[in-house]
Design a protein around this nucleic acid. Structure first.
Lengths: 209, 209, 209, 209
DNA sequence: GGATAATCGAGACGGTACGTCACGTCTTAGT
DNA sequence: ACTAAGACGTGACGTACCGTCTCGATTATCC
């Protein structure tokens, strides 16, 4: 059950690790995930193939870590002042406005052509590979969703959200439609759509008396 | 620009086509999409490789057609009486109940282990390959979603749905959360969840006065 | 026990086979056997690696066949007139002279720099790999040695060789010393040495009365 | 041109050196020379790879030294009384009998399964690698052959060998046929064959008047 | 006897070649 | 003409070793 031989991570080459991240992200961006190969990543990074196989079980795992590293570096750069909070959802007192702000930002992020290829690749891989999917959810998705839970709980305290509503489900009502359109490319994903989703989700679909 | 040589589809072997469908579905179910190969499908179907390459552009296309064929055969079997409508969403007058019924069925379908692997494979492939994704949406997803539009329009006429609500968006509010949980495996996908989604979506998240 | 799958040799590409022979001999001549790789042969021959692996079990086997082919072509070119006899050992009636002629030719052949590398490689490989060695002996060595047996038998009939001498052993007494010097590079292999061996072997080492 | 850094051999670990010898010989015996790797030797000897690379230029060199060491230890054990002469060829006055005795012993040694694999490996390597071959001849082969020269010179003095016979050539006439059969595996190598070779070589092949 | 410098075990590293797998094209018989 | 079969050139796979390198942790002389 234990891995046949665990390499000594204290002797790992940081230079190679970073070069692999960079090469992986660049190649996926340039040629797409399918056409990106481990051999290609190794060659571009100036690294032996074995150095990749030593530390990662699959191409998808490499890309995942590269992604996490990218996110971590971006976060570190963006807000070194905010200790652990990183970037939360703002709370101006107006729940609908705050959610629209954040969901519009999400729309922009999803539509960013630079991020699109690697994100789609990683998501698709996670859909098929349960282990990778779990890691994707745990390390990338859940932390983001937790911010919504926090904001929605605050809204409940402020009386802007039904006290009996499960914030987790509420959040999915808001997020899932955007994800749906983006992943399946059914219809364009716009700011207007984000606003509509907030309005419909908060207000409900049935007529109010 | 035109394909170099269009094969004469009138001479096509039906026997081979069906064998390929069966082999493709069986192999994807047994070994997963990644490990399923065109050579493997050809061997299992007792067919030459060229017979596959002649009629389909890719492994994904084969699987897609196999899926459509499966769906068509299932439909034919289920309701030969209903002309083109296949099976619509029931209309008992109680919108919430009708939606819960259908969404629960959807939950069951998604949780069916037989369908899971091929559906995930096809969806994931469509997420990465835009062309295939479009086909997937057009041939498999949109027809299903149209049924919701029909039912929701009827509800609007009956005054059970806001007249200003866009049925297409409304439907996404209902469907997307299920898809989200299923695709990303964030949390279990249950009947209870389907019910909750219907309640939240119809009723809205903010307190009613 | 049977090979997992025997390829259909009737459909084998002659063009590829010849290109592989040429590439193998050229590379071994240029870079030596150790530095010659299957990948290199395939690349130089403009052939897929699998085409080599399909038809030969090892690098040594490729070289062996290339060698046999070379010998066959040389033989065909040299003497298409002589039906099956190819080139035998001449019989002028003077056994010593005939043997010296042939052994001097052997010395020249062994000292030919073009043949040296591949012959050494093949011999060395056969020394270590019994299976290959058997093939080497059967297909390359034994046919040559048989010519000596014929000539020595003729000498026996002519009363130039002891009637009780085993031609096979006699032949080894003549050939082995040359092979020994060539393989082990103990001392230079010259025409004079060949002559000496013939004289010593025929006349014996002990004083004649 | 000079080696970049000569290691200080006075600080060399004897324990490691011996462990490497043992491991090398054992592995070659067990798996053959080709499948024996430097990494494997290091692992089996409980030694760092660099310790091998520091002291030997190649796998063949390791095996050669291991062999020499083995021979030295065997000699030390066999005859600690005989100073430098080790074990010479006996001189009973009967040249033929003495040679048969020694050549039979050689036959036994060559047929010893324990020695076979490493000896073949070393010989084959020397056939291809001229540098190693020279070392093999100088350190292992020539000392043995010198014993024959000594014995044959004594025979000449005693009038049992032609005075004009070159002892070096004579020796090759005796040794080479055995080596030939052993290396090329053409025919079985037996005591009877050794006897025949001595008889043929001493007596010559042509009829005595 | 304590400093100091080389060797030691270990193993990560950039590479090369291995032998295998599947790709998509092409050729050959057979129906 | 389309089929089953499968050889072909191509290229990536994941593995095994190569020979170099960098680590502490022993040694083992020299001060």
């Amino acid at each position: 059950m234990a891995p046949h031989k665990a390499p000594d991570s204290s002797r790992r080459s940081d230079r190679s690790r970073r070069a692999i991240y960079d090469a992986a992200l660049a190649l996926v961006g340039e040629s797409g995930y399918r056409r990106t190969t481990i051999e290609g990543i190794a060659a571009r990074a100036g690294v032996g193939k074995q150095t990749i196989y030593r530390w990662w079980p699959s191409k998808a795992a490499v890309l995942m870590e590269a992604f996490l590293d990218l996110a971590a570096r971006a976060a570190e750069e963006a807000g070194p002042q905010a200790g652990g909070a990183e970037y939360g959802i703002p709370d101006t007192g107006d729940l609908a406005a705050d959610l629209k702000l954040v969901l519009r930002a999400t729309v922009d992020e999803l539509n960013d052509p630079l991020m699109e290829a690697p994100t789609r690749a990683l998501t698709a891989e996670g859909i098929v590979d349960a282990k990778l999917g779990a890691e994707f959810v745990e390390k990338l998705l859940d932390p983001q969703l937790a911010l919504y839970v926090t904001r929605l709980r605050a809204a409940q305290k402020a009386g802007q959200l039904r006290p009996d509503a499960d914030p987790r489900v509420a959040l999915e009502l808001l997020i899932a439609p955007l994800t749906h359109r983006w992943l399946l490319r059914t219809l364009p994903l716009t700011h207007a759509y984000a606003d509509t989703i907030v309005d419909y989700a908060l207000g409900g679909l049935t007529p109010r008396p």
